[in-house]
Amino acid sequence: MTITINGKPEVLEGSTVLEVLKLKDIDPQMVAVELNTQIIERDQLATTSIKEGDQVEFLFYMGGGS
């Protein structure tokens, strides 16, 4: 299955957003997840399925400023 992660097409198995996070070795607490421009609540990651052609954005925290 090919999905776009942060702008880059990637071939990945995994049927839910949480599985994609695990495959990418990303702690769900570290990111906000957007699926096709929709923010996915953290408790929905395991139940939100992913399909061919989906656009996923992992937005990492960026907290500096000084």
């Binding site: 607490q29 570290m30 906000a32 923010i39 907290g63």
Partner: peptide, 11 residues
Amino acid sequence: IFKQPPPPGLV
């Protein structure tokens, strides 16, 4: 987008 700060120490 970000509901709350990340857990302390993680980021």
